[in-house]
Design a protein around this nucleic acid. Structure first.
Lengths: 323, 323
DNA sequence: TTGAAAGCGCTAACAC
DNA sequence: GTGTTAGCGCTTTCAA
């Protein structure tokens, strides 16, 4: 077995509780004893067993991070940032992928519950009711989902959508289309509301669609049929698929139709034409969500909604309307 | 506090040890008692505390997965698959990002060590010496790195590179270039050896380069200077950057120069031209690595090297040589 | 087949 | 400032 607190105690001639204190309450132990104990510990390669510690303190110093699909390029920057922020706060994070399956998601939360101090739920597929039930067992922070009374990190897609429509309008486009995402999506709903409020333009609503390239590909015909010359797509993947579908039909972007995506994934910078998009602050969302979560772990409370700004990044997939 | 084994024992009129057995050694308990206990447990919403269990069994049922950079599109499919495979085996996985920093990497392993039964090290930046030292503390499986005597999952890049060179040769290219990656990379070394063995062609070695689009972008001038008409790049990101760099200099892909990448990341299918690439079985690697790890957790042993096949995917970035 | 008791590694009152 | 003791939730001998 590995070296335990008892080994350190024996080797440094003090009681285990002194060793314990040397680590978790340094101010309660004589500086000299402390340095000696720590030296011995270091010498022996002692590392506190966090699981054992958790048993008495009730703090595991672990977090759960649950996402629908790790492979969706929207998530990795969020995971990376969350994980790093947690590490800086001396927390480890379990990352779990539900593969878009609510059943898996619920089960995961259940089994994780005892091993973590809190859970970050990103774009959950669970019903509100289930989420509300589960929150009794462990603190949550939601990302990209709104449930009343729960701590949440949101990105201001509505504003992003407004910026997008203004951009298209400024370029002279008057007939626009919104290629929506899955019907249950909060993001998609926000975009629709922004579209409905757009002025001086017609906006056609095309959807729902799968939030993938295939979804965009399949929407190409409808976009053409709508007569729109400016399009806001649910996300970058959809936008890229759409551009491809349009190309297959001999429609050029941006010469014939302008297309804007959402998320600012890396692929958007690499595709041709480079994608004009609404950048989502995913890394910031990850960091902030972790901080909110740790705060609510400490204070038992901390609900509240944090709304993060989005920005429009103009690249090559939008251009002037030719009327 | 949550419901513990004691609550279940009390509510079902048996001793805690019986409840324990009902869960972890069902065959040792009377079927009737068992069903009753389980019913009560279910009723109370009891879930065994894995951390407490780990304290006596020595098995945490957790795994660590350490990668250099979650945002690198090479990793998410691997993480996703590993995580899912682990879940099927009733394991949870800590995912940690070292941000390419060996110091962080070592530290992470150290603190994770006590909480996991094994660690998956993907493309580690540590020295062999350090890896060998750390393996004393916890079982490892290495992905994309070879250290003697350690369990390893490798992808057959050398064969992939051969296929790439053969493809280029068959298209009539005679002057080739290999745009290499970071100097310490096992993958890069494999590619170089394959290149050196290629027949009937000249291969220029260009590098080392950063394993990113910027690396590819910066290599464009050298590629042109080399006079090569067929290029194998370290990975897809480099290939995409290279294609961009060539375009900036008025060189068309594939008309003037053919380019092949490695990894088959999603962006490669979305970029223009669509990238011809060597597909790496990252998901399979993740699954297999987890199985190897669990096996070595059980048997204390299990070293061995698994080599996975790679395949050439021909898309649009390669074409016939115009000579 | 079940109960009793010890103990995993650690922390947290409580004494001294 | 340090030692003693009990106990976190669970498993695992050992008896019965």
């Amino acid at each position: 077995m590995a070296v335990t607190i008892r080994d350190v105690a024996r080797a440094s001639g003090v009681h285990v509780s002194t060793v314990s204190r040397a680590f978790s309450a340094p101010h309660l132990v004589n500086p000299e004893t402390r340095t000696r104990v720590l030296a011995v510990a270091d010498d022996l390669g002692y590392r506190p067993n966090r699981a054992a510690r958790a048993l008495t303190t009730g703090r595991t110093h672990n977090l759960g991070l649950i996402v629908a699909d790790i492979s969706n390029p929207f998530f990795p920057p969020l995971i990376k940032a969350a994980q790093e922020q947690a590490r800086l706060r001396d927390y480890h994070v379990f990352v779990a992928d539900t593969d878009e399956d609510p059943k898996v998601e619920e089960d995961l939360i259940q089994t994780l519950t005892k091993q973590v101090d809190g859970v970050l739920l990103c774009s959950p597929r669970l019903t509100n009711r289930t989420i509300e039930r589960l929150r009794e067992e462990v603190p949550f922070v939601l990302v990209n989902r709104r449930v009343k009374g729960m701590a949440t990190v949101l990105m201001d897609v509505a504003r992003g959508a407004r910026l997008a429509f203004e951009h298209l309008t400024a370029l002279g486009h008057r007939r626009l289309a919104l290629v929506t995402g899955p019907s249950g999506s909060w993001t998609s709903k926000e975009m629709q509301e922004a579209a409905a409020a757009a002025r001086d333009v017609d906006v056609a609503f095309l959807g729902p669609n799968q939030p993938t390239e295939l979804g965009g590909l399949a929407a190409a015909a409808d976009v053409i049929a709508s007569g729109a010359t400016g399009v806001l797509a649910y996300n970058d993947l959809v936008a890229i698929g759409l551009i491809e579908g349009l190309a297959e039909r001999g429609v050029d972007v941006p010469d014939d139709i302008s297309v804007i995506g959402v998320d600012d994934i890396v692929a958007g910078r690499l595709s041709r034409p480079k994608l004009t998009t609404i950048a989502m602050p995913t890394a910031a969302a990850g960091r902030i969500a972790v901080d909110m979560l740790l705060q609510s772990v400490d204070s038992q409370a901390a609900t509240g909604v944090t709304m993060l700004e989005t920005t429009l990044i103009v690249r090559e997939s939008t251009g002037e309307a030719h009327t």
